[in-house]
Amino acid sequence: MAAGGDHGSPDSYRSPLASRYASPEMCFVFSDRYKFRTWRQLWLWLAEAEQTLGLPITDEQIQEMKSNLENIDFKMAAEEEKRLRHDVMAHVHTFGHCCPKAAGIIHLGATSCYVGDNTDLIILRNALDLLLPKLARVISRLADFAKERASLPTLGFTHFQPAQLTTVGKRCCLWIQDLCMDLQNLKRVRDDLRFRGVKGTTGTQASFLQLFEGDDHKVEQLDKMVTEKAGFKRAFIITGQTYTRKVDIEVLSVLASLGASVHKICTDIRLLANLKEMEEPFEKQQIGSSAMPYKRNPMRSERCCSLARHLMTLVMDPLQTASVQWFERTLDDSANRRICLAEAFLTADTILNTLQNISEGLVVYPKVIERRIRQELPFMATENIIMAMVKAGGSRQDCHEKIRVLSQQAASVVKQEGGDNDLIERIQVDAYFSPIHSQLDHLLDPSSFTGRASQQVQRFLEEEVYPLLKPYESVMKVKAELCL
């Protein structure tokens, strides 16, 4: 049975990233139509530049190519590739079939990587351009969430054990800070992308030097003109047959890092959902379990974690691919890159769409948070109580021993009897502590235990987050809708 299948058929496997999760716009960027249309555009740009620099290419040939950029006979191309065992030459023939007058000058002087690699770089750039505003929107939604809850005390956790208090907004800023680093890295790697350009079979530009009869300047002009037509500021000066596969490492490393950030955020949300302090959106008709109707599973956060793990592992592909590119190139890269580049971007696209949807509907339960604080705060307040007693004339050592005994009794009630923490009640009825009984409410005010959390939130948002989001103001209103 021949390899390949009808990918629109229910009898043929289709990647869930495309069929179930990723956005239509990201799927289109990695589609065959987008790819092969870009090949034709690159052939047109090459012909236009070659004509401008004096090669015998007519206006009629150029116009014929322009008129057929979208006229792609995919069936013919597939048949040609089956016959020739070469995808680029299959599309040269297919393009030439609908451009008979231009057929002889299509791909003039070029090698397969002229269309293959340059198209990949265009796709990487455009895919990054799709991700950047999506990530900015996630940051914006979380920034709104953090600002609104900047002063809401909550129990902090280290080692997932109760620690000092923080605020809900401050905790959210930990998430935002990681995503801001990801946004900066995505922008950097996007701006650092260079075009492969017009380089020939081993990167020496020998074929173009021959076409222009040894004119170095025209060869350099050709490279520059096509690079500018493709919208790049610069091209690699040095290439082998391909652009260095280190570029793929750079791009997928940034995406993998984004995956790590999203995994951490969504894990926190899942843990908070278990504590009943916070939940992701839950639709009115949504079913959490087929057997347990009360369940409210954090399905979206779980999906993000599941896909983020996949995204983090994909960076190993370009690392290994770059390491086995012998001399000017081997074909070890080809099949692998067809999979890992598309999957990385479709996965990143999915987790950003999902995280935006989550961040637009996060639900906080202040009463649950308050109750958990009441359970733990008495123990945390013991040092403040000791200091207040010393100020009232008591002995630190005597007070410490009193607190120690009462704390152990209260802990026994919590752990052995399943009761509430009654340390404060014990202190309130103990005559030894009568000098500070009137101060206990103040000493137990949760806001006095959150330090500068709310001020940190305000400063972080104003100095770091809002300036970073400013270039994306025009796209901030787009909502994230999930079908599944």
Rank of each mutant, 00 (worst) to 15 (best):
S289R: 05
E343Y: 12
R309C: 13
N353A: 13
T58F: 12
T119E: 07
G116I: 04
S448I: 14
K147H: 13
Q455K: 08
C180K: 06
G96D: 05
C180E: 07
V138C: 08
R141S: 15
H86M: 01
K224R: 11
G8N: 15
D191W: 08
G418C: 04
L44Y: 07
L482D: 08
I57L: 07
V189C: 15
T227S: 14
L183C: 09
V88T: 09
C266V: 09
N274M: 12
Q51A: 10
E343V: 06
Q210L: 04
S448W: 10
G169V: 00
H310G: 07
T382L: 02
H107A: 00
S438H: 10
P10I: 15
R196F: 04
V368R: 11
Q61F: 06
E481L: 10
S112W: 02
L423E: 06
S67R: 12
P435C: 09
F379M: 13
N71Q: 12
E148N: 09
L352I: 13
K470V: 10
E464D: 11
R85E: 00
H217S: 11
D6C: 07
L165Q: 11
Q356S: 13
A3D: 14
T450N: 03
D59E: 12
M76Y: 12
V324L: 10
S257C: 07
A291Y: 00
F30W: 12
V115T: 12
L121W: 00
M476L: 14
L17V: 15
S323Q: 07
A411Y: 06
R459C: 11
R20L: 03
E302D: 06
I385E: 02
C266K: 01
D441A: 09
H97N: 12
D120M: 05
T52E: 15
I287W: 02
K187Y: 11
I385H: 05
D349R: 03
G240H: 07
Q184G: 11
R33F: 09
Q210T: 14
L128S: 10
D445G: 09
H400V: 05
V315W: 11
C98V: 11
M299F: 05
E148D: 13
M292E: 04
A2I: 10
I287R: 00
R337M: 03
A103V: 13
D333L: 03
I436L: 07
I62Q: 06
E50Y: 02
P153F: 02
I436Q: 06
T227C: 13
D248T: 04
E328V: 02
F95N: 07
L186N: 06
Q205T: 09
I369Q: 07
A110C: 07
R20S: 00
V219R: 01
F236R: 07
A256W: 07
Q286T: 03
I237P: 07
S323P: 05
S67K: 13
S412T: 14
E48A: 05
R188Q: 08
Q439S: 13
R149F: 12
P293L: 03
L222E: 00
E80V: 13
A230Y: 01
Q184A: 13
L44C: 12
